[in-house]
Amino acid sequence: MIAAVSVTGLVKRFGQAEVLRGIDLEVPAGRVTCLIGPSGSGKSTLLRCLAFLEEATEGAILIGGEPLGFAVTPDGRRTRLPSGRIRAVRSQIGMVFQHFNLWPHMTALGNVSEALKTVRRLGRSEADDRAMAQLRKVGLQNRANLYPSQLSGGQQQRVAIARALALEPKIMLFDEPTSSLDPELTGEVLNVMRALAADGMTMVVVSHEIGFAASVGHQIAFLDHGQLLLRGTPQEVFRKPRHARLDQFLDTYLDRGAAMLL
């Protein structure tokens, strides 16, 4: 079976700083892969490379077997693909950001239907119908005509998820989708993500919600200093005795109570 995403030898440098140092990762289709790791370990950078918001310095990314951004010739050289092909491959990817990034000048419905109209060239009524269906899925059909500034953080994030889903991506990327939410609002967003996972969506989730990762994730990848230290099922990764760095991470990043549960 072709992996939904396959990453080989990914290196990302910002000037002198090497942020990703040779990442190899397979994301199986229909499964949830959770990226965890300390702050600054490169999780966001890796996710942004998968979305082609950041261009990798070296290495290759395949989305459903298709190269993303660059073609690698057998002798190892990379050439940039034409923008049409980049766009086609990227259209299979949806992204959800930590800070929602809704378009402030459009209502919830407008945010979800906009790309259907401008990018997919659907008629207004069809675009609105589809957008409405997505909003219903995330439980916001009765907030459709409100602007982002009139929605709570949790509601905004659910609109952002609906906006990404409306374009029917094959893979959904989430960068700390609940980190800027008040604790009582994280639940509603995590529930939407759970339902999405149960539907069989391929997901890559960067999260500090270790509980979510352990219960929903099929694959856990632990990143540290730009390297993938561990990768496996939650059982394999969290089982004791644990890798020393992971233990240290869990100790500092979770309160002790939660760490004991794992």
Binding site: L102, A115, L167
Partner: peptide, 29 residues
């Protein structure tokens, strides 16, 4: 905000669509 532009980029907006539909209204306001 950069993120708002990136969201449009992810949604497949072409540069001029992004300019007129996202950047101009926000900058204008």
């Amino acid at each position: 905000p950069r993120g708002v532009v990136e969201a449009a980029d992810m949604a497949g907006f072409r540069p001029f669509q992004l300019f007129w539909r996202i950047r101009v209204p926000i900058a204008f306001k």
